[in-house]
Nucleic acid binder design. Structure first.
Lengths: 151, 151
DNA sequence: TTTAAATTGTTTAGCATTACACCAATAAGT
DNA sequence: ACTTATTGGTGTAATGCTAAACAATTTAAA
């Protein structure tokens, strides 16, 4: 009806926004981000830090830039992150054996144990969110579809 | 095999990260964000600004906080955004008729035309991304699924 | 009616993220 | 030997998000 008076009713028409993948993706991702923070903030771990830990845990000895490239981050952003994780005694820098410029990243003993509990929490949260889907097949389909849209 | 030597091979094992919805969502959303910027940065419109315009276009007369609540933003973040959109002559603040505290937001004449071209670009980009999916049914399913994961 | 509480737009500050240019040390290619 | 590329690191600017505070104003309570 598009009258020129002020809107006082509660309903808001989202129009094209409701059919845009980008907007829906943003809402879903922000929800995951806040939920993740609720679950892991007391451990001092953000989603970004968790990603770094997960990569180093599965690929011990990677250099900082290798981790940054894998995650699509800037090299410079790794410095503060690794500094923090090193101070938290989760991982450590060791001089690379064949390149005196670079460090190789390894989990500390305590870091390995820390990742266990951290991973448990994340997987628990993941299960809760995944339980909103119909079945495992739908979850697999969603993961694949998101991957298709990521390149 | 988890040897203690430095990794020199190209392949990186993403481990649990590959199966986490949050990580896949983030990658997909970041891809959409950068693609959106490529398409609309010359118009000076970010995804967040587009959302505001889309809401005001469909709901003329909403107050700033009403738009903020609809989009899940903070009221304070609206100020700079509306300032910018007002300077770009896309929308305007009018004093609310029944509340001298608040402004009602309306599209300008030029703003309506601007939204036309802006919307065309966004929908074109949307079609390209959606074409990666199998069919319209899959797109609808994805939109619904993302909505389920957004609350 | 008077008073207290809530709301609106706004400003400001802090925080994290991202991007970019730059640097010294080192490695690699010619 | 010499040039170029790479690595970790620093600094900086822009951005987005939160939270707190504030004056003006509205609403609710007494």
């Amino acid at each position: 009806m598009a009258d020129d008076s002020n809107k006082t009713d509660q309903t808001v028409d989202f129009g094209v926004l409701n059919h845009l993948l980008g907007y829906r993706l943003r809402r879903a991702q922000m929800n995951f981000f806040s939920k993740f923070s609720e679950v892991c903030s007391d451990l001092g771990i953000s989603p970004g830090l968790f990603a770094i830990i997960a990569i180093v845990e599965r690929n011990p000895g990677l250099t900082q830039t290798a981790v940054a490239q894998a995650l699509g981050n800037d090299r410079s952003a790794m410095v503060a992150a690794v500094d923090k994780l090193e101070k938290m005694d989760i991982l450590e820098r060791r001089p690379a054996i064949n390149d005196r410029r670079s460090y190789a990243l390894f989990m500390t003993q305590q870091g390995k144990a820390f990742f266990q509990t951290l991973n448990e929490r994340v997987m628990e949260h993941e299960k809760i969110m995944a339980s909103r889907l119909k079945n495992d097949e739908e979850l697999e389909w969603l993961l694949n579809t998101l991957d298709v849209l990521s390149q």
